[in-house]
Design a protein around this nucleic acid. Sequence first.
DNA 1: TGCCCTTGCGCG
DNA 2: AAAGCGCGCAAGGGCA
Length: 625
Amino acid sequence: METYTTTVGGQDVLVHVGPDFGPMPAPGVLGLDVESTYLTDRAQFDPAFKVRTVQFATEQEAWVLDVTDPAQRATAAGILTDTAFSFCSHTNMDVLSVLAEFGIDIADRNIDTRALAIMADPDKDNDRDLKTLGTLYGMDELRQDDESLYAWMQARWVDAGGRKNAAKAHIEQVGWDALASLPVDELPDRFFIYAGKDAIVCRRLLPLLIPATQAPAELLRIEQWLAATCNRIQARGLRVDENELNSLLAYARAETGDAERVAKEITGGITLRSPKLQGWFGEHGVEWDDWTGALTPKGTPSLAKENVKLIGDFPLDEQGRAVFDALIKFRRSLDLLNKCEGISARIVDGRIHPLLNPVGATTTARMSSSGPNLQNMSKTDRRMRGMFLPDPGHELWTIDFDQVELRVVAGLAREEKMIETILAGGDLHQLTVDELAAMGVTISRQVGKMANFLIVYGGGPKALAEQAGIPLDIAAEVVYGIRERYPAINALTIYMSGMKDEVRTISGRRLPVTVNRKTGDVRSYANVNYLVQSSARELLVDAWHRFAVDFGHDGVVWWPVHDELVLQVPTGEQAAQIIADAERAMTLDFMGVPITASAVRLVDEQGVSRWMPGDVAEKIAKGKS
DNA sequence: TGCCCTTGCGCG
DNA sequence: AAAGCGCGCAAGGGCA
């Protein structure tokens, strides 16, 4: 064993490297970090993935164990298995790595310091890697060591013939990959020292970050539960109908490829995604000034969803018509293509394992998903969600809150008209229509719905005019009318916009106010949205926790989508009870406002359970009966 | 050529 | 005075 003496936060620490582990650390919380083979798209789920070293640390001492050595591996496994130890690590990567390498699930015994760092400082613009946090909390050595390691990697990479002017991030990536493929016994000392210090810094951050969150203990407790639960969902993965995936992939490649070829030929090289295409259409019959569809934030015509078809309503010339047809064909399959490629690149044993980040939305702590993002699968193209199947012997159900954000804002503001309507089982969008009618402003229910979203999102006349395709003066009447007819919400908006420092959710979570980058102004109009969006997220997580823990249905949630839980329920008699419990868990009183939810069984026309939007499943069920 | 920033669009 | 919020991903376009 080699022991290095170095410093963290100006204090001497020891980093033990090697086979003779030395005295065991006392039971308690250890900083944990692993180094692995380089990460492919499939990351820890790649069959070739291997952990190379495991680092444990107290605040003063780190042990770096070479997992390729059987004795050290056994020592590491012993500590990881021993429930007298719990761990803290940065991100959930180490938890997944330990599971992949050792088959040991430490999710319940691990605290994610990165998640704590977000709670401590939810400003989206700030970095939260260990070395940045280390510097922030008086442990700058990690940054220094990182630079030393970087210099080593740069020399190695440039010597190996890399581009001399490559960006630092690029060299770092290549450097880490190079390190990851070196045999462990050829790694430089500074690598092990860095690795050990990583774990020490992580361990030292824990007691610093917890008070920095200023979060109530109950909130921290539920976040801990959620993090472990999200980890297990990722590890379990989602089953993919691979035949369907492959046929969709072939179809989407052919469709988009054909369309792209045709369009390029006619336009002389303009792709079907290029902003230049709109100018081209302008020369082939489209009067953009007469565009009646929605606009993008930039004010150019939006071609999202069905909008793109509006181009066909203009008197196009022959070339314009041909490119339009190609564009329609392209747009119909582009999203499908991208999603299928993403899924295909990550499939392992018929499953994908997207990250489910419990606090992915830094500003509001909503959950996010990536690799691939499973929270933005198309609802209009059923084939995308339809690729995902429950495990054998199970079926999928979906249960979602009804208009949860509007109800939350109604409750927080105590907007009596809204609350009465909710209690009476009425329609909040129609209420807005009726309230405006009382002021002599006539709008459709569709615009009433958009107007209600403005309340939640903090929008103004311009946004409504653009999205609804109505004149600015009418939109202004709607917006100002709403402020008058919903005085309590208006008061809440004014009250919240007075908060220039932070916003607190119903659970006491601190949220940041945000700043307009160009003007430097505080975007205080967004505060109501942050409060509402984040509080609604907490209501969902609380309901999920009740369902999993209080009702004893741990592991039943298949995938969450903000205000919705998709459930994977064993087929059979107990299914009805599980669904009933889910409905009970998601039915609650929020400040006198009932929050309700209803479950839908997801079964296609052939009687096969697969993922799909709830309203689609309801239509299928109706068609059958 | 590769990197970085912006834009658009899917979901909520 | 006015201000649509939060994500992840792919691709375009400017730049070196």
